[in-house]
Each structure stands twice: as C-alpha cells, then as structure tokens.
Amino acid sequence: MAALVEINHLTKRFSFLTAVDDISFGVDKGEVLGFLGPNGAGKSTTMKMITGFLTPDAGKVQIGGVDIVDQAVAVKKRIGYLPEGAPLYPDMTPAAFLHFVGAVRGFSGEELRKRIRDTVDKVHLTSVLEQSIGTLSKGFKRRVGIAQAILHDPEVLILDEPTDGLDPNQKQEVRALIRNMATDKAIILSTHILEEVDAVCNRVIIVADGKIVADGTPSQLEAKSPHHNAVTLVVSDVDQRHVQQQLELLTGVASAQCVVQDNCVHCTVYPANGNPILAAVSGIARERAWNVEELHVQRGRLDDVFRTITTKE
C-alpha cells in the first residue's frame, strides 16, 4: 500500500548544481515529517516540487497515487502550502486575501465565510482582519500564510519553515496548531530548529547536498548521538581525579569527563555501545558514599547528530 505522499527518485538540477539528488520517501496520514538540513541542502526545492511549483528533472511526486505533473490542478486541490518566508500580497487585507484563496479553491457563499471564520479563529487573526497585510507584524503575516494553507482542510500540508522569525510564544502556538492537525493529515515541515522536531514531529529526514542522510523517528536519531544514554553526575566534596578514575573503571563505560565547577565535580559518563549505564553509575556512587547533587540520563542531542551527519562528507 503506497503512502499518501509518494516521492520517487526526485531530482532537480540548476545549471551547475544538483539541488535535489534522487530523493525518495513516503509520508502517510498521521505523520508529521520534519525535514532537516543545512541551508542549501535542497529542502525548499524538494518542497517546491512536491507542491507542483517546480517541475522535477527526474522522478515523480504522487499524492494519493496521482502524479502532480500529470494532473496538476486536481492534485494541488489536496495540498496546503506555506512557501518559505510566507509571501503574501501586501496590499490586500487578510480578509480579502483569504476570500481570494478560498474562492480559487472552489468555495463560495456561506461555506466560504464559515471556513474563513473557523480558520481565522484557529490562528487568532480576528483582530487584524481588515488591516492591509503589508502593515502587519511578522507573526501575523506568518499566521495569514498558515491560514491560507489550511483553509481548505487539505490532506497534505507542506510548511516551509513555519516558525521562522516568530517569537517563542508564537512558535509554541504554531506548534500546538500543527500537533492538533496531525491526526488526519500528512504534514511535511522544514525547519532549522531542532527542538521543534522534538516538539511536533514523529519522523525526521535529514538532507545534505540534496541527498537523504538520515531517516527515522526523533528518538532513533537521538540514539546516534554520542550523548545518548550518557549519564550526568554531579558530586560534591570529592576529588575530581578520583571520581573520574572510578567511573572509567566501571564496565560498560567508554569514558568519563569530569570538571570542577562551584566546588562540585560535574561528570559526563559516556557508555560503550550506547547501552544504559545509569545503574552502574548510581551503584558506585552509593558504594563510595559520594555526596550526589545530581544524577540523570541524557537522551542524546539531535543537534549533535545533525552536525555529525551533515558535515562529515
């Protein structure tokens, strides 16, 4: 059974540069796919091909089994898209703009008004509905962009950096909005912000130089981090070198790094093979009767993984 969004061997070349190089993946309803990668990795180009703005040089994009190049208009009806930077017509008001988008999407009369009302409520735009878009703040502009993308309740939602340039509160709002829509849609969003992936995505694809370099759930990727299952231990009243020695002698421990800070010894203990070592570490602390101030397991950091896999080649 093919996924709702099927991407097969997608390739796009710009004169000297292969921006997207043979990318394939599928996204199904209920999935929120985080599309990660350094600037220029090909994220936006891929999204532009999925939404039918750019024509691929090779490969296919199919939504529900229908090719976007063959039946562009029919497929575009099923997609909502927020382009990078949320471009909008600055001379229009949000009300007029949403009316325009809704009308093009085939709604009219009471149905159109109801959809605009519901969407405006969802993204909290009511207060600025009659101001011209050019005068709105960045946060409001982004919300207008999101509103036009979800107005027709699409099965497939493509969001290119939906929270870029928003303040922390607005970011939280947008993420909550995305999470709420996740159950009955296939959502692809690109981002630079790794915490965002943790907050909203249940799948991550990392691209570099136009190729997919990692694909998995956020926790699978975190497991690739050297920090995965590492243990942080803070003890006071103990000699730093002694603690480090003891920790490194433990079975299952690859190495330990200890530094003295504020009269406490802060240690990070790295496991061999990523296996859990919390029990061993807490065991030795109890055995030696160290004065433990803090003890916890690290989950692994996505940004470490991101950095290692996008820079090694």
Binding site: T51, F53, A74, K76, P83, L88, Y89, V104
Partner: peptide
Amino acid sequence: KAGTIELLLTLPVS
C-alpha cells in the same frame, strides 16, 4: 519579487 508567484501557482489553477 514578492515570491507570491509561488503562492499563486501552487493554487489549483492552470
């Protein structure tokens, strides 16, 4: 210039 061409041409219009 404004990038709205991307918006317009990803709407269901030919």
